[in-house]
């Protein structure tokens, strides 16, 4: 069984892996930072955020000396699962750490409920 954790990330409760919700690619151990199994790309933020007056220091786009755009992709299908705007060299954020033990217990109960429901009974 897979539990959807974000728009693009599931956790497979059997394999205990982060998986891509779009292509099913097994990304990394669910007890670790999913970004460790992703592809990472750094780009100049002005490639996405267009400038209004390119010659000006302040021009509606982030300053590439202060800020780099970090895109995080699924290795299986290239879906962009997350982005970060970081100063050069700042560590990537470990943004989601799921308590796997609690998640497993929660869905064990859910599975029991579903089985019971199929038999026409009611859980109290």
């Amino acid at each position: 069984m897979k539990v959807r954790i974000t728009e693009y990330l599931d956790i497979n409760l059997q394999t205990k892996k982060w998986c891509c919700n779009r292509c099913g690619y097994e990304i990394f151990d669910a007890g670790e930072n999913y970004k460790k199994g992703c592809l990472i790309y750094e780009r100049d933020p002005r490639e996405v955020h267009n400038t209004v007056l390119p010659e000006s220091e302040f021009n509606f786009a982030p300053d590439p000396d202060w800020c780099r755009l970090i895109e995080i992709y699924c290795p299986g299908c290239g879906t962009m699962v997350e982005v970060e705007y970081l100063p050069p060299g700042h560590p990537l954020t470990e943004d989601i750490v799921i308590d796997l033990e609690q998640l497993l217990k929660k869905y064990e109960k859910y599975e029991e409920y579903k089985k019971h429901e199929k038999r026409g009974g009611r859980m109290v």
């Binding site: 728009e7 693009y8 000006s56 302040f58 021009n59 786009a61 300053d63 800020c67 982005v83 705007y85």
Partner: peptide, 19 residues
């Protein structure tokens, strides 16, 4: 004005950095 304060959610981009 130099770095966006609000990155988007789940792969979305941030807003502009208006001067």
């Amino acid at each position: 004005q130099k770095i966006p304060c609000n990155s988007g959610l789940f792969g979305g981009y941030a807003t502009i950095t208006p001067p």
